[in-house]
């Protein structure tokens, strides 16, 4: 680990401890809920960022995979008595498999066509969720009854909103560690070579197909986990939360936040959920947030490829080298 990475890891751990321990004491119930959502979407954004940063691939369909993870979690919630944490992991794992399956035919593509394929998938998923809806405790495979929804379980130790926020934050910390482990070991090196040149990577004996699929699976796992956590946070899921437009927004904000570090995913989550909530609280229109997002995306694309996180980290680096 290079020193900068080490500092950033320690900053991360300190930040996690701070948010888990201190924040719930000082913030009102509203902001706990908002930050829970922001953390959940930071988890999903880290998946989008991973695939974009490591392989240069644009994924506009992450929102669809979040929905898939949420669907699986709800289905299992009503059908089984499994512990919630296990249920979240299963939802993440299955979504990872589904993500990899979808990626299989898309592996030959990159650039614009891959982005278009994912956009088509996001649009498909939107209609799919609308047609079949999310399980609400009904009978049958789809589990949808034309009635009010039954309760969604939370872990026994995370029943209150505050406890659930801590639970989500710890899940986020674990996920970042998982990504960090990948980046600093064999998959990370393989991805770097694939990014440079697929032919060279193959010549060097790297199983290109496997490692590309592995990136998609990991990203899908993160999306699925976040969907499952979202189901627990909201107590139900609604097809209207999983529109293709949201997938576009999530990708845009991942880029704005910065795709190369965990900090970028957090910035993306905060922009996606905290900023509109602040605007709403101040009585400002959510449309203003949309304009800011659009301008920030164009700015990031044109002049700040490392995003807001890159700029923050850059400031740290400067400070560090001055010592």
């Amino acid at each position: 680990m290079d020193p900068l990475q080490k500092t950033s890891t320690w900053i991360g751990v300190a930040l996690l401890a701070l948010t888990v321990l201190i924040l719930p004491m000082v913030l009102g119930a509203l902001w706990i809920k908002v930050l829970t959502s922001a953390a959940i979407f930071a988890l999903a954004a880290s998946g989008v960022a991973l695939v974009y940063a490591q392989l240069g691939l644009i994924n506009l369909a992450q929102i669809a995979l979040i929905g898939v993870g949420g669907w699986i979690a709800l289905r299992l919630n009503y059908a089984t008595d499994l512990p919630v944490t296990l249920l979240v992991i299963i939802a993440g794992g299955l979504t990872g498999v589904i993500g990899a399956l979808f990626a299989l035919p898309a592996l030959r593509m990159r650039g614009l066509y891959l982005a278009l394929v994912t956009l088509m998938v996001a649009a498909l998923a939107q209609i799919f969720f609308n047609a079949f809806q999310f399980p609400n405790g009904g009978e049958g495979f789809w589990g949808v009854a034309q009635k009010s929804a039954d309760a969604v379980r939370r872990p026994g130790f995370a029943q209150s909103d505050t406890a659930y926020f801590r639970y989500v934050m710890i899940a986020l910390g674990v996920a970042f560690m998982l990504i960090g482990l990948h980046k600093s070991s064999a998959p990370g090196r393989a991805w770097a070579m694939i990014r440079q040149s697929e032919a060279n990577a193959m010549a060097a004996g790297i199983n290109v197909t496997f490692f590309k699929l592995w990136a998609f699976a990991l990203s899908g796992f993160l999306a699925g986990t976040s969907g499952a956590l979202l189901a627990g946070a909201l107590g139900q899921l609604d097809a209207r939360s999983f529109l293709a437009g949201e997938g576009i927004l999530l990708f845009a904000l991942a880029v704005v936040g910065g795709v190369f570090s965990w900090l970028g995913a957090i910035v993306a989550g905060l922009l996606y959920k905290l900023l509109p909530a602040i605007f709403n609280d101040l009585g400002l229109s959510a449309d203003i947030a949309m304009i800011i997002f659009g301008a920030a995306l164009m700015h990031a694309i044109m002049t700040a490829p490392e995003g807001i996180a890159g700029q923050i980290m850059g400031a740290f680096k400067k400070g560090g080298s001055d010592d």
């Binding site: 644009i58 990159r110 650039g111 614009l112 891959l114 982005a115 576009i248 927004l249 990708f251 845009a252 880029v255 229109s285 959510a286 449309d287 203003i288 947030a289 949309m290 304009i291 800011i292 997002f293 659009g294 301008a295 920030a296 995306l297 164009m298 694309i301 044109m302």
Partner: peptide, 23 residues
Amino acid sequence: REPAVKAVATLGYMLILLGVMGL
């Protein structure tokens, strides 16, 4: 820039226009 990057930049314009119309 690559075609994909060009396309992504227009997403930014789309968001701005959506926001302005909403306002």
